[in-house]
């Protein structure tokens, strides 16, 4: 684990923002609530939290954050998306009339793929690189239907991809922020460390 202290932004439109902030503080890092594009300049990496992806998307559009977050990703800054964050980082279906995603990661998403709230569940998940199972909480969760060749699959459940990484982007269909287990965030912080070695 790195001893470096990072400033990690949490997209502050709506959703489980405080939960991610608590995890970051617990690991000794600073969290910054991102409400506008200017604030993106102050941070080393960004978390897009769980929430309602359609609401977050519309609020991002209103607050001029769509292109700004796309540029943030293109500058190789790391982004971690959980649940709604995974949906937003993915690509629109080819036949989609209106864009509702950032299209940054080469993944096709099945929104609410595991069903409605009554189908929401907890399960222990085997994650690549983790010795012990991860306690995953899936809430009206999406999954990844198809992933490009540069996407590393980190976990599957019921033969569906539920966690993955592509270069500077990390996604989980479940909610690490709802557990006390910070291993997923630590994985992200390792990515942040990798990406911030280059001299500024």
């Amino acid at each position: 684990m790195s001893k470096q202290k990072y400033r990690i932004g949490i997209l502050g439109m709506q959703g489980a923002i405080a939960e991610h902030a608590d995890h970051l503080h617990h690991l000794g890092h600073e969290s910054v609530l991102i409400k506008n594009k200017e604030m993106l300049e102050e941070i080393d990496a960004l978390i897009i939290p769980g929430g309602e992806s359609t609401a977050i998307w519309r609020l991002m559009r209103k607050n001029n954050l769509i292109e700004a977050v796309q540029q943030f990703a293109h500058s190789q800054k790391p982004i971690f998306g959980t649940c709604a964050g995974l949906v937003l980082l993915g690509k629109d279906q080819a036949e989609a009339e209106e864009s509702t995603k950032l299209g940054l990661m080469d993944i096709q998403i099945k929104r609410n793929g595991f069903g409605r709230q009554k189908d929401s569940f907890e399960a222990d998940l085997t994650v690549k690189g983790m010795e012990e199972p991860y306690p995953a909480i899936f809430i009206r969760a999406p999954y990844i239907e198809a992933a490009g060749e540069n996407v590393a699959v980190l976990a599957t459940y019921d033969n569906k991809i539920v966690a993955a990484r592509e270069d500077n982007l990390l996604v989980a269909a479940f909610h690490p922020e709802l557990t006390d287990d910070t291993r997923f965030l630590e994985l992200f912080l390792e990515m942040v460390e990798e990406k911030t070695v280059s001299p500024v």
Binding site: M13, G15, A16, E19, G50, G51, C83, E122, I137
Partner: peptide, 22 residues
């Protein structure tokens, strides 16, 4: 595949946590 637990306290309260700020 490990057991799938539905309707737990974390799943039910967690759903409301996703609505925060909305």
């Amino acid at each position: 595949m490990t057991e799938r637990l539905t309707g737990t306290e974390r799943v039910k309260r967690g759903m409301a946590q996703m609505q925060k700020g909305g």
